[in-house]
């Protein structure tokens, strides 16, 4: 039954993806893109990856749709025909497709428990989590401690994106002579009473859910990244309804900057602390006498760092897009 459902959803994914490529109106394409992400998230859920599903839904369907729409309000909605010769592009694509297609026949079948990918490193993570970390969500354990250095990298990637967006379209960035006057995203939907009321009812629940996801991430799907994205979604939703200035009065952009940088510094600071205490970088075990307690403490702090940075960065990016345009 689940297999059939997966196949059905995957077919829908392909159809929406084709729709995104074919749509002449960019607004339509962006909306289809949101649906594509949501379908993908559902597939991930069926494939036993709730953490990934939650993230894809919050980021792919939520945040990136908002960013794309804000960008569209500053650029143009219609796509004009053009581009390189479709024949050449199709040829490149088909050749690449044929090559990967060729590779699929040697792949282990879906779900095979004896596939090499399950037999080596990954097989040890569950017992290692049980003995040395002792938190129920193995994904969080791998993310926050076994591969914590990757996660620090991920936080830095997000921070880099914020630096880039501020550098390119922040308040100090230069404007070209074709800069649009005013910005649709600036004002909000003040004249759409039903949307405002329904939206505002949702906001407290989103924030509550974000906090739950943040502090319950060791036990259930979620963690700093998802929580940060949800918190950002709540604030951005508020901004979309009431205007950018209302959102800025909830958390001031200067505070957001501090959050974005501070979260990454908090994460890195844990690493430096463990070094000073005689361990390796991010070796949480040295934080306390009992290694399992120490792991819990380390994970708690770095997840907080992740959440703070992600929320700060995403809201900051929203402000940058929404404030762009001539005054």
């Amino acid at each position: 039954m689940i297999a059939v459902l997966t196949i059905f959803l995957l077919c829908l994914c392909v159809i929406t993806a084709l729709g995104v490529v074919r749509a002449g109106n960019l607004f339509t394409a962006v909306m289809l893109m949101g649906i594509y992400s949501l379908l993908m998230a559902a597939v991930f859920l069926l494939l036993d990856a709730p953490d990934v599903a939650l993230t894809e839904a919050a980021v792919g369907a939520g945040i990136s749709t908002v960013l794309l729409l804000s960008a569209l309000s500053l650029t143009a909605e219609e796509e004009h025909a053009g581009g390189i010769e479709p024949v050449l592009a199709a040829a490149v694509v088909l050749i690449t497709a044929a090559i990967i297609f060729y590779a699929t026949f040697d792949k282990p079948p879906l779900g095979d428990p004896d596939a090499p990918v399950h037999r080596h490193v990954a097989a040890d993570y569950v017992p290692m989590t049980q003995e040395q970390v002792d938190i129920p969500n193995v994904v969080t354990a791998v993310l926050a401690t076994f591969r914590g250095y990757d996660t620090l990298g991920e936080v830095v990637v997000v921070l880099t994106a914020a630096i880039g967006v501020l550098f390119l379209i922040g308040p100090d960035a230069p404007q070209g002579r074709h800069a649009p006057s005013g910005n649709l995203a600036e004002g909000g939907l003040k004249h759409h009473q039903p949307l405002r009321i329904v939206g505002k009812i949702a906001i407290p629940f989103i924030i509550l859910f974000a906090l739950y996801v943040q502090f319950h991430g060791e036990y259930s799907p979620g963690g700093g990244f998802q929580a940060g994205a949800l918190l950002a979604a709540a604030i951005i939703l508020y901004g979309l309804l009431e205007g950018r200035h209302a959102a800025a009065s909830v958390i001031h952009p200067a505070v957001l900057r501090t959050m974005a940088a501070g979260g990454a510094l908090l994460f890195g600071g844990v690493g430096v602390t463990t070094m000073l205490l005689g361990g390796r970088f991010l070796e949480y075990n040295v934080l306390r006498d009992d290694p399992i307690d120490a792991q819990h403490l380390g994970i708690l702090v770095i997840e907080a760092g992740v959440g703070v940075t992600v929320a700060g960065v995403l809201i900051l990016i929203y402000h940058a897009f929404a404030a762009r345009g001539r005054p």
């Binding site: 143009a76 997000v158 994106a161 880039g164 967006v165 390119l168 002579r177 897009f321």
Partner: peptide, 18 residues
Amino acid sequence: ISTLALGLAIVVRIKEAY
């Protein structure tokens, strides 16, 4: 998402410039 955000910011600047 980070790449997308940066890419969109560049697109906005391209629109302003061209």
